[in-house]
Amino acid sequence: MRLLVHNLLMCNKCDKNNYPLKIEVNKSVIMELEFKKDAILKLIPKLDFEVLSNTVRELGFKQFPKQIPPNVDQDLVFLKDLHRVLFETHIMDGQLTCPNPSCKRNYPITNGIPNMILTEDEQ
């Protein structure tokens, strides 16, 4: 799972305060991918950048900007960081947790695949 997917996922067991899910990482890997400036620029406005930034910094990349920098299309350093964060970092093992204190449902990530299926009585 990449952080792009995390940016879209929510908990379905509850319907309030169910986004963003907390991440716990046991194993992550970097897989290099060709950098495509145009594609990443087009993708930026589709993200919840605040959520992405908070997650990245919580996971240890403290210098990652809190906001999209001005003149982002010129800021190659940032775009490459973003490329690494969004496209090249894969969380292989860990878990996602619903942020709602009265829910806290855990969703395991195994072999890079989050399991978001609820059990019969959770639906």
């Binding site: 799972m1 996922l9 929510m10 379905n12 695949i113 978001m116 639906q123």
Partner: peptide
């Protein structure tokens, strides 16, 4: 990029 889910209730924003 894949995850397992129920398509009657997608865990997506």
């Amino acid at each position: 990029q894949v995850f397992s889910a129920d398509s009657l209730r997608l865990p997506l924003k």
